[in-house]
Computed example of a mutant assay.
Amino acid sequence: MMANKLRKSLDRDEWEITIVDKHRTHYYQPGFLFIPFGIYNKQDVIKPKADFIPPGVKVVFSEVDKVEAEENKVHLADGSVLLYDYLIIATGTETRPDETPGLTDKLWRKEIFDFYTVEGAVELQKFFKQWEGGKLVLAITELPYKCPVAPIEFVCLADAYFTEKGIRDKVDITFVTPLAGAFTKPIATKMLSELLAEKNIKVVPDFYIEKVDNEKKAIVSYDEQEIPFDVLTIVPMNMGNSVIERSGLGDDMNYVPTDKHTLRSEKYENIFVLGDAANLPTSKAGSVAHFAADILFENLMSAIEGRPLMAKFDGHANCYIETGFGKGALIDFNYDTEPLPGTFPLPGIGPFGLLKNTKINHYGKVMFRWMYWHILLRGKELPIDPLMTMAGKKMIK
């Protein structure tokens, strides 16, 4: 996104733009959710990164050893060094199943699966095709994790999948979370909790996983509660990329301390941070990165031109929630305002309903994949303001 935006605006004779990336393949991560249920397959969520890089942008496919911020240097794994005037860090967040004792033991990818990697999602699809029922547990290990609504979507899609297979009465679905409810915000939590109850999905709140017991086939909390499973779908601990740790740029979770409004590093004036790599107090979700990209672009251009950074990001997040049976919900919120009911994006018209379970919201989720490949990655303008608006929202007292 940033390469496309910047290449259109910066003089090619004055500015060289380089992307450093260790992966040649780009993954549409929201699509991983659909793979276990046979809605998507692996080929539906991957494309070559080269398809999205504009002419005039240099690409280096390499691991980064470390960033030497004091010297404005990026050290690559092969020993070569890149110099920069400005650096954008977009190293994201990564699943770390190795951080939870017992998680990657003998049941890993056999009866314990993640769906936050394409490999885990594909293995779970194979398992579900042959599974005849039992205790299905979805468990979240720790906060934060990317795409906060995805676990809710997973259990809803599981409910629909096993209903359509004719074995829902043989499948016990439990949603286990360290949160006090189904979501982080009260109004959305109420709506989503009622939805899960309607689907006969049990919610176990305030459960902090200490370990996975492979012999008992149970997750164990720090206060020694146990929840047995026949198949466990896990949201592993998330951490920032290890290059952030090696570079001394991060906090204890390897996220970069970032000004939540300007998106500039709190320590270095010529480093900006986009997406999950930042320690912003908002969702680690794709929509946040998309909205923040517009603000970061404005502020980076201001920095280059020696102007004060006037653009302010408000933590805007917008998430479609797939709820199964061809329906979906939608939430829209920011740093200061929790998800509220109403219409989106047009007040009173929609067509999407906030905190409503509708077919049109499902179509919004389906259409998003096309928008992602053809609009967002190419740095084109979205027809939605990057800052959240209260228009169309209803306040609840």
Rank of each mutant, 00 (worst) to 15 (best):
W131K: 08
P383I: 12
E298F: 00
S247M: 09
K216C: 03
F368M: 05
V155N: 04
D169V: 00
G342P: 01
A90I: 07
L387S: 14
G133N: 06
L382F: 06
A150P: 00
A158N: 06
R24D: 14
R246C: 08
D169G: 02
D172N: 15
I234H: 05
T323G: 10
D11L: 06
F162S: 06
R96S: 14
P178W: 02
D276T: 14
T91N: 08
K165N: 00
D314W: 05
D251M: 12
F344E: 08
L87S: 07
D85E: 11
Y222M: 06
N72S: 15
A158S: 14
D252H: 10
P144Y: 07
G79W: 09
K217P: 01
G350W: 04
A285Y: 05
F297N: 11
P386D: 12
E111Q: 15
K126M: 11
F127V: 04
I396V: 15
H75V: 15
A180W: 14
L103Q: 05
Y363D: 05
L76R: 09
A311T: 05
E224C: 09
G392C: 04
T93R: 02
V203F: 04
I39K: 04
D385L: 14
F37D: 13
T343N: 06
L6H: 08
L330W: 07
G38Y: 04
V20L: 10
E94T: 00
K380R: 14
T100Q: 08
K106C: 05
P228T: 13
N4L: 05
Q130T: 11
R109E: 14
N357I: 06
W15Q: 14
L76A: 11
Y28C: 01
L263F: 06
P36S: 14
S247D: 09
I53P: 04
N299D: 10
D336F: 12
Q29W: 02
I234Q: 05
M301H: 12
L296V: 03
N41V: 09
F113Q: 12
L33D: 06
I234T: 09
V60C: 03
P205M: 13
A180Y: 13
K66R: 15
F229Q: 01
E194M: 13
V366H: 00
L376V: 12
K146V: 13
G31S: 01
F313I: 03
V118T: 13
V81H: 01
K129I: 07
N72P: 02
Y363Q: 11
I295P: 02
R369V: 00
M390S: 09
M388A: 09
E305A: 10
D159P: 01
I396N: 08
I35R: 03
F183R: 13
D332W: 02
Q29H: 11
P178H: 04
L355D: 00
D98V: 13
E215I: 10
S287L: 05
A391W: 08
F229Y: 15
R378I: 03
V366M: 04
K22S: 13
Y161T: 03
K260R: 11
G56M: 04
